[in-house]
Design a binder for these strands. Structure first.
Lengths: 152, 152
DNA sequence: TCTATTTAGTTGTAATTGCAACTACTTTTT
DNA sequence: AAAAAGTAGTTGCAATTACAACTAAATAGA
């Protein structure tokens, strides 16, 4: 680590910009969801992740990994989602310690409902400001590089 | 709003990337701070913001605005920082409802101490992956555009 | 096989957050 | 100048999060 410790003004100001832009964007988007009486983004994240998974099911530890939540926090988030019927827990036959989270029909419906609002918000606050193809490609390339570096 | 509701696959995957990259980066950086026995980024944010302010002082409401915290959460964050002597509260002479948060010497020292670790982490996880000048300029331009849109 | 280690998930508890209500003060309106 | 409306900051309380300890089951090592 620390191959390049120096940080110039441009770099640190862009970092700051990255943090603030992220924060303000999320603020606006969460606001839209709240205005539409929809649950917050971390609910969406779980529902979407399950939807993408084979058979709409995922071991809790895998789910935690994907949605960037600690295991204990995931346990309780899953509790809440289960309580309102958006997913259910299934025992894992091959590993008696394990539990699957399985998306229910109501969960899928909710995912779609949230998406309709969420997608519009992403379009308004994000996508519509990425003017040309080249700009979005650059962003993609940079973010991919950052992500793989952060995951080692 | 909703000038452009459509969202194509590239756009939504880049949005997703933006969220995950941000989350993973912060995770790593917070980890570095914790390993160095330093307080979390929101403490830094307050200390830095005060350092930048004229006379190292800022009204609580202005501070809340800049660090992206609700007023009530700022009250308690300021409580914690005050309790360990990193800042102090001063009454505002011209508006008796008002309070200033003022950076103490210890607060300034702490800001610098955190910065030494934080800057290295930003360099390692962020800056050093922005290869050429053009890439960082593009990022700056895009983020600026997103930020101003999110702030209306 | 029997013990030690690791892994999956949950739970206790303390700290933090979010939201609404509240106090005190200031500004605007009439 | 009095009443109404708005602003600054704090507080109560419920919900969420973080961290560590815990139970149960699987795996590795002797």
């Amino acid at each position: 680590m620390n191959a390049k410790v120096q940080l110039n003004d441009l770099q640190s100001s862009v970092w700051r910009l990255f943090l603030t832009a992220h924060a303000r964007l999320l603020e606006q988007i969460e606001l839209r969801l709240a205005q539409a009486d929809l649950p917050p983004l971390d609910w969406y994240d779980v529902l979407f992740t399950l939807k993408e998974a084979p058979d709409h099911r995922l071991r809790l530890s895998d789910l935690a990994e994907k949605v960037l939540l600690s295991r204990s926090n995931l346990t309780r988030l899953v509790d809440r989602l289960e309580k309102v019927g958006l997913l259910r827990r299934d025992a894992c036959p091959s590993d008696r310690r394990g539990t699957f989270a399985v998306l229910t029909d109501a969960g899928l419906a909710m995912q779609q409902k949230i998406w309709s609002v969420y997608a519009a918000a992403i379009a308004d606050y994000f996508a519509c400001h990425l003017q040309n193809e080249e700009e979005i490609k650059t962003l993609q390339r940079v973010l991919n590089r950052l992500l793989s570096a952060a995951e080692q």
